[in-house]
C-alpha cells in the first residue's frame, strides 16, 4: 500500500532522514519507536507530504506522492492524520469539525454528513458533545474527536504522530482503546508513540529508528525480548525500565 524508497530529508544542513526504505501492506499496524530527534515524526509527516522529502520517493496505492505532478490534496483525503496537539478547529463545533471534510472535499450532502458524524460520535460515546466547541473538551476527548475527524474522510491509512504524548496520564487509556478498536477493524495504521504497551499489544511490526535511519525492525515479541542491535537494547532498557 505504501512503499517508501530511500527517503531523505534535510532541514538546512541537518540531515534528519538518511535514506529510509520500507513497505507497509494493507491492514498492517506499524509502530515506530525511537529516541527524540531520531526522525520518526519527520518520517511520518513525509508520508502525507506535510514535509517535502529532499530525495527518494513515496508510492501510495500506485501513485508517486513525491512527484511534483501528483495532485497531493486528492491523495491526502485517503491518508488520515492525528497530531500530538490535536489541532481541532477551535471556531467550529465538534460535529462541524468532523463533517467539514466530507462536505467540502467529497461534496457530501449536509444531512448525509451529519448522519455520518452522529454515527461516529455515537460509536465512541461522545454524542453529548455534538454541539460543543473544542475548548470545552478534555484532552482525551479532543484527541478522540480528532481521530473521528480523520475517519470521516474514510481514509485507507491512518497516521498517528505521538497521539497520547500531550495527554494527562488518566486520559491516555481512552485514546489507546479507540486506536486498538481501529486496529481490530483492520485499519492500516502507522503510529509514532512512546506507549510500549500499546506497541506490544497491537503492532504487527515495530520499527526502531535512530539518527535518521531504521536501525532495527521486527515483530514486537522478537524486538522487545531479543533486540539484535546495541542501540535498540540501550533504548529499550531506558524506556522499559
Amino acid at each position: 500500500m505504501i512503499k517508501v524508497n530511500n527517503l531523505i530529508k534535510r532541514f538546512g544542513k541537518l540531515e534528519v532522514l538518511k535514506g529510509i526504505s520500507h513497505e507497509i501492506k494493507q491492514g498492517e499496524v506499524v509502530v515506530i519507536i525511537g529516541p527524540s530527534g531520531s526522525g520518526k515524526s519527520t518520517f511520518l509527516r513525509c508520508l502525507n507530504m506535510l514535509e517535502h522529502p529532499c530525495g527518494g520517493d513515496i508510492n501510495f496505492e500506485g501513485v508517486l506522492l513525491t512527484s511534483a505532478k501528483t495532485k497531493i490534496d486528492l491523495h491526502r483525503q485517503k491518508i488520515g492524520m492525528v497530531f500530538q496537539q490535536f489541532n481541532l478547529f477551535p471556531h467550529k463545533t465538534v460535529l462541524d469539525n468532523i463533517i467539514l471534510g466530507p462536505i467540502k472535499l467529497k461534496n457530501m450532502p449536509k444531512d448525509q454528513a451529519i448522519a455520518l458524524g452522529e454515527k461516529l460520535l455515537n460509536r465512541v460515546g461522545l454524542m453529548d458533545k455534538r454541539d460543543t466547541y473544542p475548548n470545552k473538551l478534555s484532552g482525551g476527548q479532543k484527541q478522540r474527536i480528532a481521530i473521528l475527524r480523520a475517519l470521516a474522510m474514510s481514509p485507507d491509512v491512518m497516521l498517528f504522530d505521538e497521539p497520547t504524548s500531550s495527554l494527562d496520564p488518566e486520559m491516555v487509556g481512552e485514546v489507546l482503546e479507540m486506536m486498538k478498536d481501529l486496529a481490530k477493524e483492520g485499519m492500516t495504521m502507522i503510529v509514532v508513540t512512546h506507549e510500549m504497551g500499546f506497541a506490544k499489544e497491537v503492532a504487527d511490526r515495530i520499527l526502531f529508528m535512530d539518527e535518521g535511519k531504521i536501525v532495527e525492525m521486527g515483530e514486537p515479541e522478537q524486538l522487545f525480548s531479543a533486540p539484535k542491535e546495541e542501540r535498540t537494547k540501550l533504548f529499550l532498557s531506558k524506556v522499559l525500565a
Binding site: 502525507n48 506535510l50 490534496d73 486528492l74 491523495h75 491526502r76 483525503q77 485517503k78 491518508i79 488520515g80 492524520m81 497530531f83 496537539q85 489541532n87 481541532l88 478547529f89 467539514l100 471534510g101 467540502k104 472535499l105 480528532a146 475527524r149 480523520a150 474522510m153
Partner: peptide, 15 residues
C-alpha cells in the same frame, strides 16, 4: 493562527 491548524486542514486534503 497556530501552525497546526494549517497542517490539520491540509492533512484532510483541503487545498
Amino acid at each position: 493562527v497556530d501552525k497546526g491548524q494549517m497542517e490539520a486542514a491540509r492533512s484532510l486534503g483541503m487545498p
